[in-house]
Simulated scan of single mutants.
Amino acid sequence: MIFYSIIKDQRVYFDKKSVFCYDSFVPKLSNIHPVLVRPQFSGNIGAATRAAKAMGLGPLFLIEPHPPLDGEARKFAAGAIKELKKIKSFSNLDSAIKDSVRIFGLSARRREHRSKPIWLEEAVEEALKASSKGTVLFLFGKERTGLENEELDFAQVLVRIKTSSRFKSMNLAQAVMVTAYEIKKQAGAKIEPYDYEPATGEDIECLIQALDNALERRDFFKPNKRNMALRRMRDLFGRAAPKKNEISLFRGMLRCLDEKHLFRKL
């Protein structure tokens, strides 16, 4: 017989040979947050809140503008009404992603100048690994149009839910529920956590801004191509999942390469 206990986020078991063994860590589901970007219906906020609570995830993040958390939200939250008070509201995505270590954006549509999306199952495995180091976000767009390209730029990885090829669109709250369930399901599997300190969303955005400023001053961008180039840069660094010290290295290289010392204030 094997007895299990939890010690410092690791699953520890004692086998019949009286030997302690350490298995993979226990993911911190409370570090994983669904982010509803400019949702239109309060009922979906309530239903998404209930889904996150039922699967053990952290509180919802809301990006303004969003409807008030009124009776409709409470109606769909049902037994999770108290969780509505824990929702965090942000004026923009910049402030929401600041401390996150991994950001996933869900979309059923093809996007130009972005890498091919991965399936939800693969994204969840990556999210659980990252949850050991900090906040992980799953971005969901508003009901009518989903995530706009400018909003999806903040996502390091594009994610797709497996649906019928004939009809790919899902209700917002349903998409949150499917995602939350997949996270809960995989949380019991053997997963190795990140063994390094990942760069945060703010770290990567600061580097992108530094590159943007440097290249703009040197007239690098072709007419009307700047946004496309920045999107590709974000996609590159997002897929790379860089370490925090690697971002610092890049910024140091920028300062060193600038002969006119234009980067001293970075």
Rank of each mutant, 00 (worst) to 15 (best):
F237I: 08
K28N: 14
A108Q: 09
F14G: 00
D9R: 15
F167T: 13
N224M: 06
D212T: 09
G201L: 07
Q10M: 10
K243R: 15
Q186N: 06
K28I: 01
G252K: 13
E259Q: 13
E125Q: 10
V159K: 03
L257H: 11
A73K: 10
R232E: 00
L57W: 02
R111S: 11
D9G: 09
N44C: 03
L152F: 07
S115T: 10
L257D: 07
L84N: 08
K86T: 11
R264W: 04
P67R: 00
R102K: 13
M177D: 02
V136Q: 03
P223G: 08
F41Y: 15
A214N: 12
K168V: 12
A189Y: 10
A51M: 01
L207C: 08
K185L: 14
I97Y: 04
G58Q: 03
P27R: 14
R255T: 09
R11T: 08
S169Q: 08
A173Q: 06
L120G: 07
F221P: 06
C21A: 12
I191Q: 06
K86Q: 14
G238T: 12
V157Y: 01
K265N: 14
K243A: 13
I7T: 12
L137C: 04
P27M: 11
S164Y: 08
E192G: 06
I204F: 07
A80L: 03
Y13T: 09
Y4H: 13
R11P: 01
A240R: 12
S169I: 14
A77K: 02
R109F: 05
S248C: 06
Q174R: 10
Y196K: 13
R160Y: 02
K88I: 12
V159F: 01
M1N: 07
L172G: 05
D235R: 02
T200K: 15
H66W: 00
V12I: 15
D212R: 13
L60R: 02
S164A: 13
G58K: 00
A54S: 14
E112R: 15
G43R: 03
K225W: 04
E112W: 05
V101T: 03
G146C: 10
K8S: 12
Y194S: 05
R38N: 12
S18P: 00
L106H: 08
V157M: 05
V136N: 01
A173Y: 04
K162G: 05
S100L: 04
A51N: 08
E197Y: 07
F20T: 14
E197R: 15
E125R: 15
R11W: 04
S42L: 01
M228P: 01
I45H: 03
A180Y: 05
L266S: 11
L60N: 01
R255L: 09
L69T: 02
L128C: 08
D15W: 03
D99W: 02
A210P: 06
L254F: 07
V19W: 08
I32Q: 03
A73G: 05
K265S: 12
L249F: 14
